[in-house]
Computed example of a mutant assay.
Amino acid sequence: MTVRTRLLVLLSALALLAGVATASVLHASARAERRNQAPADGPRITPGRVTLTQPGRMVFRNMAWGPHRDELVSVPAADPAGPRTASHVRCLRFYAASGTGVCLQAVHGPVSDTYRAVVLDASLHERARYDVPGIPSRARVSPSGRYAAWTAFVGGDSYAGSRFSTRAAIVDTRTGALTPSLEAYRVVKDGRTYHATDVNFWGVTFAADDRTFYATLATRGTTYLVRGDLRTRTLTVLHQNVECPSLSPDGTRVAFKKRVAGLPGDAPWRLYVLDLRTLRETPLAETRSVDDQAVWRDPHTLVYALPGDYGADLYELPADGTGHPHRTAASAVSPAYVG
């Protein structure tokens, strides 16, 4: 092979490599651009003003791909699948009541992420912020807006696992007084003070009296529903096998997820409603495993998230065990009914 032939072969190889590199860059760029665009069949999302007091609205975390992914968006409560108004406020978990919101956020650092809880006013302006010791999983605000609560994983990353640790915190949004962990409260079980080194709490839900709340206590391999008292700082065990309780608007029932024997270890839950007066359980008409803290849309209907194409979709079903679940909003999680 002559020198000239070798040179032509080398130049051809370099040209081919350059073409492959250019095609790879263009392909990666196009793929990134597609990720930053909403799917053609996805919800219509436009930036605008979002408040926590606008009548007849629902606010949630938008999961649809595009420039507004993870932002709080607002839709008509009567049309959850309708056009979304985006706020530019990003949250991993969210809840709101009476013009007060709590937004759990990730703070991206050069080495690892940290997390924080931000208390929002009705216009989504920051009122206060608090460090969160791990990955956020649950958020709630009391009906009056005075108290906010959140739960974070500080060891493990799933309630389905056998080894995990959580922290549940409550803050007075008026005074800023923070209880960083419910482990500071006294636990009463079977009429006696209960002590154990393995207690975990999660899934706070508030009553309307600005004193009573409910949560999950886990200890020695069993979960319990506990009733909390913000004044006496006590937690009283009420019922076994209750996780992520959600108190009904009239304060008489708790929706929860229950571990059911015989189900897969990574999908062990079914939705139930517990009558707090009789402690009678009613299984709901959802046959899939629900790893969420359900929200009461009204006294008769529950809303909850299940895995979807872009992270999660919202479903609803009757709270009395009848009917069938149906999807109400795709690419959505952490709903709150405001106004």
Rank of each mutant, 00 (worst) to 15 (best):
Y304Q: 00
E316R: 00
A77G: 07
S12I: 09
G101L: 09
G311H: 09
Y185G: 02
M1L: 09
G176E: 08
L306E: 03
P136N: 08
R233D: 03
V119F: 06
P335S: 00
D70Q: 13
R280Y: 03
R220S: 14
A18T: 15
F164P: 03
I170N: 05
A319E: 11
S158H: 11
R90I: 04
L247H: 02
R192T: 13
S123N: 14
T193N: 10
W296E: 01
S12H: 02
E281T: 13
V73T: 14
A152H: 08
T5N: 07
A208P: 03
R129M: 14
T175E: 08
E316A: 00
V204E: 11
T322S: 15
E71M: 10
A267E: 13
V3L: 12
Y147R: 08
G48D: 10
L92E: 13
L271I: 05
L217S: 10
R31P: 01
E126I: 12
M1E: 10
A208L: 06
L72N: 06
A215I: 04
Y159S: 10
V273C: 04
G251L: 07
R270C: 02
T100E: 07
F153D: 07
L302V: 03
A30Y: 11
T2E: 11
P268Q: 03
T205A: 01
A40P: 01
T175A: 11
T252G: 05
E71K: 12
S158L: 11
P335E: 00
A255D: 05
A160Y: 12
H195N: 08
H326D: 00
R129H: 15
G203K: 04
K257Q: 12
T222Q: 14
T287V: 09
V141Y: 03
L263G: 01
G161P: 02
L284R: 01
T114P: 00
G134Q: 08
A117H: 06
L17C: 12
L317R: 00
V89E: 12
R280H: 15
T252C: 01
A218N: 07
T212H: 06
V204R: 00
A218T: 14
G82F: 05
V188E: 08
G66R: 13
P76W: 05
R49S: 09
G109Y: 12
G176S: 09
S248Y: 01
V226G: 07
A285R: 05
P133Y: 00
G109H: 11
T175V: 09
A169C: 09
Y315W: 15
F201Q: 01
L274W: 07
V132A: 13
S112Q: 14
F164R: 15
I170T: 11
L92A: 09
D157Y: 10
G156D: 13
T205R: 02
P43R: 14
P55I: 01
A218E: 15
R138N: 06
M63C: 08
L17D: 06
V154W: 05
E33W: 06
H125P: 01
A294V: 14
P318L: 13
S142R: 09
G203R: 02
A106G: 09
D198S: 08
Y304D: 01
T51N: 05
C244N: 13
A169M: 10
V132Y: 01
D121M: 12
K257I: 15
R167I: 13
V118T: 15
R31Y: 10
I135K: 05
L276A: 08
